[in-house]
Design a protein around this nucleic acid. Structure first.
Length: 390
DNA sequence: TTGTATGATTCTTC
DNA sequence: GAAGAATCATACAA
């Protein structure tokens, strides 16, 4: 489960553990004993050795030291540090502050606290039982001393045996706790890896960008960062989203038409206002002043798109490239709406006034963006080389 | 339960 | 290294 078959698999370092750890729902220490997690296996294999002499006079058991160190590192033993384990810290760092991950993070901390509490309760119980039993044995020996002589050495030996027995129980407790923490960690990392749909708002933001940049849906790094910030996702997620979107859009334009219309209509009014404002602004100022709006980093090439000539909109003879990138994108939206109202061919090339998606015959975004002198901020759509599939 | 949507991963190409 | 393409795995709706 969770492992992909037939291919190499890149992933977090806990991959091996994650792949074999059972997906337990409860977090009791007893459940934790069932794990076959790699880490746990090593603990179990060493247990037989640890029962003997984990106490005072013997050199410190390396296994016990490992357990203690791990419990300390995970914040289970030692001073309370709010569940601030390495995993939790890593998770917090990876979360990028998104609310969902924060919830997961707090969930992790809550469960770790639970484990910590169980551990300390059990540890206390064992210590108490050890003391009680020692007292009990001492009392018995005292009583026996009335009938036979008992040397201090014998008493010491008995106490030593009791302590060793109880320390082996403690060892098991520590092992179980470690296993529980490991399971929790693996489950937590699994949860991070699990696919989650983006929020509706995030999808809307991405879609709005995509459909308003249909002529060149290749956001620059800056734009990706901005989108990522807006959507509370990572830049690579933005890249993934656009990669998926471009391919799926190309594969089934018809299916996405409705969606395209929706977003186009949504931003049409804004687009019209923006265009008018930009034109106004441009006329009153310098005709070559580029727009520096929020999307200004997209130097959308447009010489391949007849509609990009703003002449048809304002009567001026100035090109879309002079308008500015954000206006350019708005024009994309606007023209889409215009085209919708006028009706257009659903096909890729067709004979319609313009191809609404700026896809070339191969399904690429090439024709709208092929000017040799103008390149995309990232990589021009010229890199869309083979769109013949499907 | 099943089909579809979708985010992620991997491989290939340039 | 970025993008396309194929695929996987999971979420989600019917």
């Amino acid at each position: 489960m969770g492992m992909r078959t037939g291919r190499g698999m890149a992933g977090p370092t806990l991959q091996g553990c994650r792949a074999t750890a059972p997906r337990v729902s409860g977090q009791s220490l007893a459940d934790a004993r069932n794990t076959d997690c790699i880490f746990s296996c090593s603990l179990f294999s060493a247990q037989g050795l640890s029962i003997r002499g984990a106490q005072e006079e013997d050199p410190p058991d390396p296994q016990l030291m490992r357990l203690d160190n791990m419990l300390l590192a995970e914040g289970v033993s030692g001073p309370e540090k709010g569940g601030g384990s390495a995993a939790a810290a890593a998770a917090a760092a990876a979360s990028g502050g998104s609310s969902d991950n924060s919830i997961e993070h707090s969930d992790y901390r809550a469960k770790l606290t639970q484990i910590r509490q169980i551990y300390h309760t059990e540890l206390e119980k064992y210590e108490q039982a050890c003391n009680e039993f020692t007292t009990h044995v001492m009392n018995l020996l005292r009583e026996q001393s009335r009938t036979r002589p008992i040397s201090p050495k014998e008493i010491e030996r008995m106490v030593g045996i009791i302590h060793r027995k109880f320390s082996s129980i403690q060892m098991q407790l520590k092992q179980s706790t470690c296993e529980a923490v490991m399971i929790l960690r693996s489950r937590f990392l699994d949860a991070r890896r699990k696919r989650r749909n983006f929020s509706k708002q995030a999808t809307e933001i991405l879609n709005e960008y995509f459909y308003s940049h249909l002529s060149n849906p290749y956001p620059s790094e800056e734009a990706k960062e901005e989108l990522a910030k807006k959507c509370s996702i990572t830049v690579s997620q933005v890249s993934n989203w656009f990669g998926n979107k471009r391919i799926r859009y190309k594969k089934n334009i018809g299916k996405f038409q409705e969606e395209a219309n929706l977003y186009a209509a949504k931003t049409a009014v804004t687009a019209a206002h923006a265009v008018a404002a930009a034109v106004q602004n441009n006329q009153t100022n310098s005709p070559t002043t580029p727009n520096s709006g929020s999307s200004g980093s997209f130097n959308l090439p447009n010489s391949g798109d007849m509609f990009m000539n703003m002449q048809s909109l304002n009567g001026d003879s100035y090109q879309g490239s002079q308008v500015g990138a954000n206006v350019q994108s708005q024009v994309d939206t606007l023209r889409h709406v215009i085209n919708q109202t006028g009706g257009y061919n659903d096909g890729l090339g067709g004979n319609s006034l313009y191809s609404p998606h700026n896809l070339n015959a191969n399904g690429g975004w090439q024709d709208a963006t092929t000017p040799s002198s103008v390149t995309s901020p990232t990589e021009g759509p010229g890199s869309v080389h083979s769109d013949t599939s499907n």
